[in-house]
Simulated scan of single mutants.
Amino acid sequence: MLDLQNVSKSIEGKTIVNDITFSVQKGSCVGLIGPNGAGKSTLVKLVSALEKPSGGSIQFIGKDVQDWTVKKLARHIAVLTQGGLDPYPITVFDAVLMGRYPHLGFFERESKSDYGQVDEVLNITGLTDFRDQMLDTLSGGEKQRVAIAKAMVQQPQLLLLDEPTTFLDIGHQKHILKLVKDWQKRDGLTVMMVLHDLNLAAQFCDELVLMDEGQIVNIGTSRDIITSETLEKVYHTNPEIIQHPTLNIPQILL
C-alpha cells in the first residue's frame, strides 16, 4: 500500500531524513521508533505530503503522494499529530463531523448519512455522552479520543499518528491505542505511528522501524529490534529486557 524508495529530506543544508526505503503492507501497523531527532516526525510529514522530499519517492496505492490533490489525499489518509485537535469552542459532534469534509463536493452540505456516521463513531469511541460538550473543555485524553473519532469518520485507508500518547496517563494511553488497534482489525486499516514508548510499540505494532540520525538502523518485529545490543547502540543506555508475562514480547525496565 505504501512504498518509500530512497527518501531524503534536507532543510537549509542539514539532512533530516537520509535514504529511507521500506514498505507498509495493507492492514498492518508499523511503528516508527528511535531517539529524539531521528527524523520520525519528518517522515510522517513526508508521507502525508505536508512536506516534499528532497530526493526519492513515496508511493501510496501506486501513485506518488505529491501528485494527489490535498482533498483527494485526505479521503485516503488521516493524520493525527502529537497536539491533536486545537481546542476550538465547538461541540464534540461538530469537531468529529469535520472528518467528513474531504468527502463533500463544493458547496455540498452534510447529509443525514454523514450525521449518522458521526453518531455511530461517537458510540464506538465512547464519546456519545460528550456529544454536545465544547471541545475546549475536554481533558487531553478526551480530546485525543475526539481526534481519533474525527479520523474514523474520515474513513481513511491509512492512518498516520505522530506520538498520539504523549502527555497522557497510562489509562488514556492504553485506551487510545486500543481504539486504533480495534479499528485496524475491524476495517483492515493500515497504521503508521511514531511512538517513544518502546513497551507500547512492542505491544501494539506488528513491525518496528528503528531510526537514528535520519537513517534506518533496523526493521523487524519487537523481538528483532528490542535487544540490549541494539538499544545500547541507538539510545546509549543498557536497560533490562524482560518478557511480557502474557503477550510473550520484550518489555523494557530502566
Rank of each mutant, 00 (worst) to 15 (best):
residue 224 D to F: 07
residue 193 M to T: 12
residue 63 K to N: 11
residue 54 S to M: 04
residue 178 K to A: 15
residue 54 S to R: 14
residue 234 V to C: 13
residue 94 D to F: 05
residue 144 Q to T: 04
residue 28 S to K: 12
residue 16 I to Q: 05
residue 58 I to Q: 10
residue 55 G to R: 12
residue 210 L to D: 07
residue 21 T to E: 00
residue 131 R to L: 05
residue 188 G to K: 03
residue 38 A to D: 03
residue 35 P to E: 15
residue 190 T to E: 03
residue 134 M to G: 01
residue 8 S to C: 14
residue 245 P to D: 09
residue 200 L to C: 13
residue 216 I to N: 06
residue 33 I to M: 04
residue 228 S to C: 05
residue 188 G to H: 13
residue 50 L to K: 10
residue 150 K to D: 03
residue 130 F to R: 03
residue 20 I to M: 01
residue 114 D to H: 01
residue 183 W to R: 00
residue 78 A to D: 03
residue 155 Q to P: 00
residue 52 K to L: 04
residue 222 S to Q: 09
residue 112 K to T: 13
residue 104 L to M: 11
residue 142 E to L: 09
residue 65 V to I: 06
residue 239 P to R: 03
residue 9 K to C: 09
residue 74 A to L: 15
residue 179 L to E: 10
residue 29 C to Q: 04
residue 140 G to P: 11
residue 183 W to I: 06
residue 55 G to Y: 06
residue 64 D to R: 06
residue 253 L to Q: 14
residue 249 I to S: 04
residue 104 L to D: 10
residue 56 G to L: 08
residue 59 Q to G: 06
residue 240 E to H: 10
residue 114 D to W: 00
residue 126 G to C: 09
residue 219 I to Y: 00
residue 180 V to I: 13
residue 201 A to G: 02
residue 162 D to A: 02
residue 237 T to E: 10
residue 182 D to F: 12
residue 56 G to P: 14
residue 237 T to D: 04
residue 143 K to T: 14
residue 117 Q to C: 07
residue 73 L to Y: 00
residue 28 S to T: 14
residue 47 V to N: 11
residue 166 T to P: 02
residue 238 N to R: 15
residue 57 S to G: 10
residue 197 D to I: 12
residue 219 I to N: 01
residue 72 K to P: 03
residue 236 H to L: 15
residue 6 N to H: 15
residue 21 T to A: 08
residue 68 W to E: 08
residue 12 E to F: 14
residue 229 E to P: 11
residue 208 L to K: 04
residue 247 L to C: 02
residue 59 Q to D: 12
residue 28 S to V: 02
residue 241 I to K: 05
residue 116 G to L: 05
residue 150 K to Y: 05
residue 223 R to E: 14
residue 136 D to C: 03
residue 229 E to G: 11
residue 28 S to M: 01
residue 27 G to R: 14
residue 78 A to P: 01
residue 56 G to Y: 10
residue 92 V to A: 05
residue 254 L to N: 15
residue 36 N to W: 11
residue 20 I to S: 02
residue 140 G to A: 13
residue 137 T to N: 11
residue 235 Y to N: 08
residue 13 G to K: 02
residue 119 D to S: 09
residue 53 P to K: 12
residue 124 I to V: 15
residue 235 Y to Q: 13
residue 66 Q to H: 05
residue 142 E to V: 08
residue 43 L to M: 05
